[in-house]
Design a protein around this nucleic acid. Sequence first.
DNA 1: AATACAAATCGACATTTGTCAACAAAAAAC
DNA 2: GTTTTTTGTTGACAAATGTCGATTTGTATT
Lengths: 234, 234
Amino acid sequence: MAKFTKTDNCKNCIDCNKKIPLFQLLSKAELTELNTSRYEVKFKAGETIFKQGTSATHLLILTSGLAKFYVEGVQEKQLIIRIIKPWEIVGQASLYFDNRHHYSIAALDDCTACFIEIGSFKKMIRQNPSFAEDFITQCTQKGVFSYEKMVSLSQKQMHGRIADGILYLSKKIYESNKFSLHLSRQDIADLTGMSKDSAIRILKEFHHEGIIELDGKNLNVLNVEQLERISETG
Amino acid sequence: MAKFTKTDNCKNCIDCNKKIPLFQLLSKAELTELNTSRYEVKFKAGETIFKQGTSATHLLILTSGLAKFYVEGVQEKQLIIRIIKPWEIVGQASLYFDNRHHYSIAALDDCTACFIEIGSFKKMIRQNPSFAEDFITQCTQKGVFSYEKMVSLSQKQMHGRIADGILYLSKKIYESNKFSLHLSRQDIADLTGMSKDSAIRILKEFHHEGIIELDGKNLNVLNVEQLERISETG
DNA sequence: AATACAAATCGACATTTGTCAACAAAAAAC
DNA sequence: GTTTTTTGTTGACAAATGTCGATTTGTATT
């Protein structure tokens, strides 16, 4: 079980101000108010942070570590929608809907998570229009991202989907061509909607063709352009 | 080309009040203000209402007819995300993002469309917190819908996807077990992420098994429970 | 009614993808 | 350091799905 601990990552919401663009729109008084309702918990790699179907009372912000955001599909299969990085606000989907988590989140790494009570967050939305606007912007961006993901999952063949997955990790998550993966092969399969065996096969193929260099968890993208070409042609 | 016409469907935004829940949160003054920036256009079946990639200056509300909301994927293929009915507000995704349409909308039927200028809509969001909240609710609902769609597209086999498609049309769009389809077989394929030939095959199969009755465009869902079972098992 | 054209249908076949079993490698537990 | 367990890897095969061409049906036009 996760330990309930105060950490040094984020002593106070007023500090978060610097890390989270959305919070820069809040006054010091508002940040102080958010701070009173927040608490922080540490999770070990593999632990579940949010479980699909449970009730949603708090929003989540990671202050360290990485997590996977996934939905539980048919026959125990997971579909990883995206990877969660520090300073991203997670939980919008449940905010005004039915107060249920419609997805699960699990730590890929040792994580520190800050939880913000939904009520106080909603209050900010009501009283601070700029905050509301920025929040809506984030929701709509996620919408566009979803459409692209649907196209990838439903219209591209395995090579295209793996290319999309690698490009996503490289550009959006690790922001580097060379990185040490937090995902297992099964996770990569769940991210790209295929069987683990197929994911391994395509990764190996890319490796042999010199598009990537993959040794265990160490991934090095050698030819971004070709990955992008594969992504576009499907 | 679409004719620019005033119609009787929606003479005034103040009437829309009755049809669109979101608009019930607006004061008469606010509705009047929205009304000044709106205009109405008729589209014939097949015409494009929004084209992916063009700039988004207005939100759309159908006052009559049906339309398909789709993204243009790889190799000219379309992925139909959902069907648009009258009194639903469309265009959120572009509102605060980059003012581009990230999807296309085409009339499936003769349609009457009401266009609301984005600026005046944004003003309502800033000045009316309840309006903003309700709007956010809609965005988050769409998010949850997207996750379910991704699971359907990526984890279910053709039978499950066709079942999902039929259930969606029956429950959400036509709100009846028996209806006259506005979609072509190709559209059904684009909605469920498969080839036209495969869609036809599965539909025929369902027909022969007595799950549905399908004659041309006339669809009658005979066994909802079985469709739901097929949807769940994938 | 005759024609033209698009949509729907179907079977045969090719390709893609998943499954399974066996094994190797790595990590965790002892 | 050894054992156990998990994770990764591979090939052979089976199942799912797409493609193609031929044919039929339906719809619009003359």
